[in-house]
Design a protein around this nucleic acid. Structure first.
Length: 951
RNA sequence: GCGAGGGUAGCCAAGCACGGAAACGGCGCAGGACUUAGGAUCCUGUCCUUAGCGGUACAAGGGUUCGAAUCCCUUCCCUCGCACCA
């Protein structure tokens, strides 16, 4: 049967909407449950991966609703930053590739104009997320509470958050080094290149500037390896570059013009006082820092004026470039400068670091291994990295390194740098590893920002209190529960504001700053409780000053005071306050694994820093990704399966089931359309089986209805347990596989009583409702059950019937055994004889069932006390030896096995068995008189495992 | 390097926090059923052996235990994070 997914989905979605199922209103008589997922950033279309986590949140919310909770599941978007700005800019300048991407994902061409404005882009995508993704997937969210971080009311909340952080003494100011465009202000340098047009792979490196004294001036070299200063033997200058002399703090420095420009952004009072060609510096002597030794200045072409300061100190022992250039200079490359040969000869490398696997000069070993022969070799870069990496992680300082001898390189590096900074021989300097160009076309540099604000997440008391609280939380997966404490521990100050062309909230203490993207998106679950009042106009942003939130969130002051201070209606204020008290704390914050090191820790910190004990979050749930064939199907690459097309093709329920069941929440899954299709078919089968069950109307074989009820009671119990620990996969296995098998067995066995089938179907459909709600409603309506499945309660736990379950297992086992035997025996049998266990064996099990713990000696003893059994002593003790361990391991349910009349059951099922096995089935009791048993099989018969003879 | 996680049958993937039946499922494959036909559906099988009850198995090797994929130790291999990116 081909179903019209979209029509069916829309039909039920509008029913839910009519009934207001997603709406969450305070109801003090009912327990509440509040769940959110970390809202997405507004940077374009989402892909099928994002819906994985969102679907989990909806399914959990639906389940809780069906268990009687008043559920709040709100949604929103995060538009802070420059995602929307750069998006708008790309549309404005007619970026073809980007516009093509938009159109491919379903953006109507006549709406492209709206996207030229960042605010328009935000609104456009807000609507895409809500209408095309979340509603289309059938989420029962409270749409009235939708909010976005760039809305004015949200901004008021964030400003309040920062006032409270300040109150708690957690806002601090100190200098900070950030990538900045001279026009646009601070930019994000990352692989997505949203702010920049070139250099997304660049990293910020911390150089140590080393000052080499010559007369009253300093030649300034930049190094990443301050630990190598003991190996300095000469100094490199590029003879073809004209260097700048700059004044810096009363000193005169010589650096490249590029470095001069960079230094002006990072140091105070830098100005140019002269110039000098590099050529003129060749042959100078200068005093190296730390070692205070005079070393010569030599020419080297590899000195790039745009890297560091364009001047380089030479440590040939550990720097492949230096090693090659020194060799070249000695071999005559420096001849034209008239340097005395004795001087060149006197320059000999000094071994300073010992690394396992290397000799006394790691640089020499590296170049030799790679077969590098000259200074211009491009592989020198790789050699450099290798030596650096090995040296840093495995090296130790040799005895040539004065007080640092014997130290591990990792440690010596910091100590030596600090020592030189303290003695005034060195300073720090930051630079990007490659050229970075802003979208506006300007070059991006690292700039010092003096009055940068930070949130002090390194605060020891806050850290401790936050860790303490995290211990009491429900955090999944369990590894993360442990790990999060570590993450909280290493968190330090975090820059929380920035300048430039950014969307976001103004920093309340200095309006030139805008609060950055993490800081404004971690306390926000709380705001969903309030956003509804702003959205429907009961409160306006003007009412939302500090006193407003102080009152409604922290219950500070009196209602009258709050009403007077805020200008808001007192009744409304009181409602908001009571709402907050009712809904908070948040029960589950669900987010992708990328949040583990940033969002979740800050989420915990902010709650702990600002809110009282009673409002601390209760749970965190982390979901892993859906990945593409090769790499992550990221938003920025745009190549992922668009959601619109996918949901049309596979159906919302098919995709929801795929997400829920394809793997545990805590592993990455590779997207596969085929797999989704499989789940669609699976769902189809479930539906048609339920439909078949609902239409059943015949008499079931004796006991089978009791079995069905018992089986579904057991499934329901398992389903609840799984859902209660948010194990959607296990729950789905039960609802879409195990229940299906049970029902199919029931029908196959000839079951079909109307009442029993409908009862089971009711439970079954309700178990489907969290993950595949549309299909569930469809079936619910077809069955004629009252109301909507989504607003029904899950039935209470049902009664189990051990004997009935045992009996059906017996039949399944028997069929399987016969098939096994047939397989190895070759041909099929004409007649099947089944021998049930003799009554004395059942008697043994009956005795065992009455005992607490069962072991061989005690069971044997107990059996021998029985006169009837004692007559059969030898066989009994043998049987006990075999069966006692199985009972104690609960392989066998002794109670059920002994109480069931197997012979009667098998005889009554003989017709069924004959049909199933395609052969006449005769049931005999192993202790019957005049037993027909030509092969002596009957001796093997035991309860639960009848003996079989194929003829 | 530091921190974390993992290696399960042809493939994907549960189980491992609380050790107890060759190890949930799915896909693939094989046989059968239903069919004009079937990529649809249903049944059965799918480590070796064998008329079902045996053997060997959960990266490799040791250990603890009556019993280990599950606990401990060693080795090999593979991911991920290391920050200002929701």
């Amino acid at each position: 049967m081909v179903r019209d997914y979209e029509g069916m989905e829309r039909r039920w979605q509008s029913k839910w909407e009519e009934r207001g199922l997603g709406r969450a209103d305070r109801d003090e008589g009912r327990p509440k449950f509040m769940i959110i997922f970390a809202y997405p950033g507004v940077t374009g279309f989402l892909h099928v991966g994002h819906l994985r986590g969102y679907t989990y949140a909806d399914a959990i919310g639906r389940y809780k609703r069906m268990e009687g909770f008043n559920v709040m599941f709100p949604v929103g978007t995060h538009a802070t930053g420059n995602g929307a700005i750069s998006l708008a800019a790309r549309v404005s300048r007619g970026d073809e590739g980007f516009i093509d991407y938009l159109v491919r994902n379903g953006c109507p061409e006549d709406r492209l104009g709206e996207l030229k404005d960042p605010a328009g882009a935000v609104e456009f995508f807000n609507s895409v997320y809500v209408e095309d993704y979340w509603k289309r997937f059938g989420f029962l969210a409270d749409w009235r509470r939708f909010t976005s971080t760039v809305r004015p009311d949200y901004g008021k909340f964030i400003q309040w958050q920062f006032r409270k952080l300040s109150e708690a003494g957690l806002l601090i100011q100190k200098p900070y080094f950030s990538a900045v465009c001279p026009h646009c202000g601070p930019v994000a340098v990352d692989a997505s290149e949203t702010d920049i047009s070139k250099g997304g792979g660049a990293e910020t490196q911390e150089y140590t500037l080393l000052k080499f004294k010559r007369g009253g001036e300093f030649l300034v070299a930049a190094t990443l390896r301050p630990e190598t200063v003991y190996g300095q033997v000469c100094f490199w200058v590029n003879p073809d570059v004209t260097y700048s002399k700059i004044k810096k703090g009363g000193e005169v420095w010589i650096v490249s013009p590029e470095a001069e420009r960079k230094l002006m952004l990072q140091k105070d009072g830098v100005e140019r006082v002269g110039q000098i060609p590099g050529r003129d510096m060749v042959g100078w002597m200068c005093e190296a820092p730390m070692i205070r030794r005079e070393i010569p200045v030599l020419p080297a072409a590899f000195c790039d004026p745009d890297v560091g300061t364009g001047l380089v100190t030479s440590v040939p022992s550990d720097a492949p470039d230096d090693w090659m250039s020194l060799a070249a200079a000695k071999a005559g490359a420096a001849d034209s400068y008239g340097l005395p040969q004795e001087l060149l000869d006197s320059i000999v490398p000094i071994p300073i670091i010992s690394i396992e696997g290397y000799g006394e000069f790691p640089a020499r070993d590296a170049v030799e291994r790679m077969g590098i022969t000259g200074p211009g070799d491009p592989r020198l870069d790789e050699a450099k990295k290798q030596v650096y990496k090995d040296g840093y992680h495995m090296g130790r300082m040799r005895e040539t390194c004065g007080p640092f001898s014997g130290m591990r390189v990792e440690e010596a590096k910091d100590k030596m740098r600090q020592a030189m900074i303290d003695s005034g021989e060195a300073e720090l300097f930051y630079d990007l590893t490659e050229e970075v160009v802003c979208r506006c076309g300007e070059r991006v540099f690292i700039k010092r920002i003096d009055d940068q604000w930070f949130v002090d997440y390194g605060n020891a008391e806050l850290t401790e209190r936050t860790r303490e609280h995290s211990r009491s939380m429900d955090i999944m997966p369990p590894e993360y529960r442990e790990n999060v404490r570590g993450v909280l521990g290493w968190f330090r100050e975090r820059a929380c504001v920035r300048q430039g062309n950014w969307l976001g909230t103004r920093f309340p203490f200095d309006e030139k700053w805008i609060i950055e993207a993490i800081s404004d998106s971690t306390l926000y679950p709380l705001y969903y409780i309030i956003s509804i009042y702003a959205n429907d106009g009961r409160i306006s942003p003007e009412n939302m000053g500090e006193e407003f939130f102080d009152y409604v969130v922290l219950s500070r002051g009196t209602l009258a005071e709050a009403a007077a201070a805020t200008g808001a209606d007192a009744g409304v204020l009181e409602d908001v306050r009571r709402d907050v008290g009712y809904w908070y704390p948040l029960d589950v914050n669900l987010g992708g694994k990328e949040h583990m090191t940033v969002h979740f820790p800050v989420f915990l910190f902010n709650h702990r820093a600002i809110l009282p004990d009673s409002m601390q979050p209760r749970g965190i749930l982390v979901n892993w990704y859906v990945t593409g064939k090769k790499d992550k199907i990221s938003k920025s690459k745009g190549g992922a399966q668009p959601i619109r097309g996918a949901v049309r093709e596979y159906g919302a329920d098919g995709m929801r089931l795929y997400y829920a069941h394809v793997a545990s929440m805590f592993v990455d899954v590779e997207w596969s359309g085929e797999a989704v299709e499989m789940y669609g078919q699976r769902l189809e089968r479930v539906m048609s089986t339920i439909e078949e069950a609902l239409s059943a109307d015949r008499e079931s074989p004796e006991g089978l209805d009791r079995w069905l009820a018992s089986a579904f009671a057991s499934r329901l119990e398992g389903f609840r347990k799984a859902m209660d620990r948010y194990d959607l996969r296990q729950a789905s296995t039960i609802a879409y596989f195990e229940m299906l098998n049970d029902m199919r067995w029931y029908l196959r066995r000839g079951g079909g009583s109307r009442a029993a089938a409908r009862d089971a179907a009711r439970t079954w459909i309700l178990c489907m409702a969290p993950v595949t709600p549309h299909s569930a409603e469809e079936l619910w309506a077809a069955a004629g059950f009252e109301g909507l499945a989504s607003e029904s309660r899950l039935p209470p736990a049902g009664e189990r019937d051990g004997a009935a379950e045992y009996g059906e297992e017996l039949l399944k086992g028997l069929i399987s055994d016969v098939a096994q035997i047939r397989k190895v025996a070759g041909s099929g049998a004409g007649r099947i004889i089944v021998y049930t266990a003799p009554s004395w064996k059942r008697e043994v099990l009956r005795i065992a069932a009455g005992m607490g713990s069962v072991d061989i000696p005690s069971l044997t003893k107990a059996c021998m006390a029985d006169e009837g059994l004692r007559r059969n002593g030898k066989a009994v003790s043998e049987f006990v030896k075999k069966v006692a361990p199985e009972i104690s391991r609960s392989v066998i349910d002794a109670g059920a096995a002994s109480s069931l009349d197997e012979a009667a059951l098998l005889r009554s099922a003989a017709g069924f068995l004959s049909a199933e096995l395609g052969a006449e089935v005769t049931v005999l009791s192993a202790d019957g008189p005049d037993l027909y048993d030509p092969a002596g099989k009957s001796r093997a018969a035991s309860p639960g495992r009848p003996a079989i003879l194929l003829e």
